[in-house]
Design a protein around this nucleic acid. Structure first.
Lengths: 201, 201
DNA sequence: CAAGCTATCTTGACAGTGTCAAAATAGAAT
DNA sequence: ATTCTATTTTGACACTGTCAAGATAGCTTG
């Protein structure tokens, strides 16, 4: 029950998610077909449907993995720079965030793209994991408000929404191929940070 | 040559773009199929291919229409409020922008989405029309810098990129179904504006 | 160990997609 | 009236997601 290693395939579910992620990394979501995926794993066309109700469900699983990876990336970040100022820490986070989006563009697309959230239907578990991720963001913003990085009079939620949208928009414009000059990414990100936070005094 | 009214169909090209736009409005880009579109226009499956090389080319045409419509919407805006302050004018523009995205979400998606810009290939004419649209944005930002709405020391291009990304991100989060509470849209937009512009003095 | 049961996987099938090639037709040009 | 070209159609191909029915593998019970 715990160790499924010697079943038909082994652990097909995990294999599917992993190779699907690989395929997507190479050619985008639109290059992923259930059939080709099954082929590549040496299994029949409909085998995956016993582990995922839908193609949508598979994509949700990939997105979940993405959130986990992002959490990992972020969590091991602020410890490295314990005596940064609030502003520096915020900028550092922003850069980490956009680098993540830049390095895993297709996963990022699934995490926050219409494919799942509008066209498809997000899994219950995906909804909870993404929701808790956003909640942490709001809480941190509230802290930074106390440190006068943002306007205290504005609700934390609003600032969180607005600032995340700014971040997200930047990621999207690069990921979607509208901003093409990759070298500008960090410079634009830094400008964004400067514009978002309040002047020192 | 000028009046194609009495040809096989009439002006098929225009009819295709229009009804395709309609279909998209109803069910998103993913609900548009070349075959159903041809059906709806009472023409055979492959007839559209003599007016558009590709499905992609059709989508580009819709996007172009979108840019034209956006231009129209924007152009008749600042005249109405001739004595607004720079800040008020900027906020007004932002609200107009996100309202446009909100009212034509599917067209907006095509104008700035990966469907065309990353996965597909933007038409030459689409590239030029969108480029000139962005250039106007940069020029306006440069003006607002002179009015101390933005930091003079920062390159206008950077500020234009960063601020547009913020706008765009907001539109996307709503359009893609991640921010769902439509009532918050304008509030978040106003917060965004407040955060982006420099304090009065 | 044998019988039954369930999780897993396969084969067959269907409706739908984009788009190419070849044929048919309508309208303009000669 | 004939030729030429712009437009539209029919047929075909390879591909997609996914449902229903059957086969098989492995665990669970007697």
């Amino acid at each position: 029950m715990k160790d499924k290693k010697s079943y038909h395939h082994g652990d097909l579910r995990k294999t599917l998610v992993d190779t699907a992620t690989d395929i997507i990394r190479g050619g985008g979501v639109e290059s992923l077909s259930m059939r080709k995926l099954a082929d590549q794993v040496s299994v029949s066309r409909t085998a995956p449907y016993h582990h995922f109700k839908d193609k949508n469900a598979l994509l949700c699983a990939i997105a979940e993995q993405g959130f986990l990876l992002q959490d990992l990336t972020v969590k091991q970040m602020p410890a490295d720079y314990p005596d940064f100022s609030a502003a520096a820490l915020f900028e550092h986070y922003v850069l980490t965030y956009i680098r993540f989006a830049n390095e895993h563009p297709e996963t990022y697309d699934l995490m926050f793209g219409r494919e799942i959230w509008k066209t498809g239907k997000p899994t219950e578990s995906l909804k909870t994991i993404s929701k808790s991720s956003f909640r942490r963001w709001v809480e941190w913003i509230a802290q930074l408000q106390q440190q006068d990085l943002f306007d205290r009079n504005e609700p934390a939620l609003r600032i969180a929404q607005a600032s995340w949208a700014a971040l997200h928009g930047l990621c999207r414009l690069f990921n979607d191929g509208i901003y093409v000059n990759r070298d500008d990414l960090e410079a634009i990100a830094k400008t964004t940070v400067k514009m978002l936070i309040q002047p020192k005094k």
